[in-house]
Measured scan of single mutants.
Amino acid sequence: GPREVTMKKGDILTLLNSTNKDWWKVEVNDRQGFVPAAYVKKLDSGTGKELVLALYDYQ
């Protein structure tokens, strides 16, 4: 199956793709996968990378 990404509340993840309104593709610890968009919030990183903050645990 697809590689699952797990996250804990407060984690910072790299946002790869947010074109789908329900599932965003993120990368964390060299793993890529989809997380519910409602579970993360975009951060203003000030760099080229888009980052998101995990609002809830997800696994």
Rank of each mutant, 00 (worst) to 15 (best):
Asn29Trp: 06
Lys25Val: 14
Leu53Cys: 07
Gly33Phe: 15
Ala37Ser: 13
Asn17Pro: 03
Leu43His: 03
Glu27Ile: 11
Pro2Leu: 14
Glu27Lys: 08
Leu53Val: 14
Tyr56Leu: 09
Tyr58Asn: 01
Leu15Met: 02
Thr47Tyr: 11
Lys41Gly: 05
Val28Arg: 09
Lys9Arg: 12
Thr14Ser: 07
Thr14Lys: 10
Val52Gly: 10
Leu51Lys: 08
Asp30Ser: 11
Asn29Arg: 09
Asn20Met: 07
Gly46Thr: 13
Leu51Ile: 09
Tyr56Ile: 09
Asn20Glu: 06
Lys25Met: 15
Gly33Leu: 15
Leu15His: 00
Lys8Cys: 09
Ala38Trp: 11
Pro36Cys: 07
Glu27Met: 13
Asp57Met: 04
Pro2His: 13
Asn17Cys: 14
Gly10Ser: 02
Leu13His: 03
Thr47Val: 12
Asn29Ser: 07
Thr47Ser: 13
Tyr58Phe: 10
Tyr39Leu: 11
Leu16Val: 10
Leu51Gln: 10
Asp11Met: 13
Leu55Ile: 08
Trp23Asn: 01
Tyr58Thr: 02
Ser45Pro: 08
Lys9Ile: 07
Trp24Tyr: 07
Leu43Arg: 01
Lys9Gln: 07
Lys42Gly: 04
Asp57Ala: 06
Leu13Gln: 00
Gly48Ile: 07
Arg31Lys: 12
Thr6Cys: 14
Thr19Val: 09
Val26Thr: 01
Glu27Phe: 07
Val35Tyr: 02
Arg31Gln: 12
Leu13Trp: 03
Trp24Ile: 04
Ser45His: 09
Glu27Val: 09
Lys25Asn: 05
Asp11Leu: 04
Lys21Ala: 12
Trp24Asp: 00
Asp44Gly: 14
Val26Tyr: 00
Phe34Gln: 03
Ala37Val: 05
Ile12Glu: 03
Phe34Gly: 01
Asn20His: 11
Asp44Arg: 11
Leu53Lys: 06
Val5Cys: 07
Leu43Ile: 14
Glu27Tyr: 08
Lys9Ser: 06
Leu53Asp: 00
Trp23Cys: 09
Lys42Arg: 12
Gly33Pro: 02
Leu51His: 06
Val35Ser: 01
Val52Phe: 05
Arg31Gly: 10
Val40Cys: 11
Gly33Thr: 08
Arg31Leu: 12
Thr47Gln: 12
Trp23Arg: 02
Val35Asn: 01
Trp23Val: 03
Leu43Val: 10
Asp57Pro: 06
Leu13Cys: 07
Pro36Asp: 02
Lys21Trp: 06
Thr19Glu: 14
Asn20Leu: 07
Gly10Glu: 02
Thr19Lys: 10
Lys42Cys: 07
Asn20Gly: 09
Pro2Gln: 13
Asn29Cys: 08
Asn29Gln: 08
Ser18His: 08
Gly33Arg: 05
Phe34Tyr: 14
Pro2Phe: 14
Leu13Gly: 07
Leu51Val: 08
Val28Gln: 11
Gln32Asp: 06
Lys42His: 06
Asp44Ala: 12
Asn20Phe: 06
Lys25Asp: 03
Ser45Asp: 12
Leu13Tyr: 07
Val28Pro: 01
Pro36Tyr: 05
Asp57Ser: 07
Lys8Ala: 07
Glu4Met: 15
Ala38Ser: 15
Asp57His: 05
Leu16Asp: 00
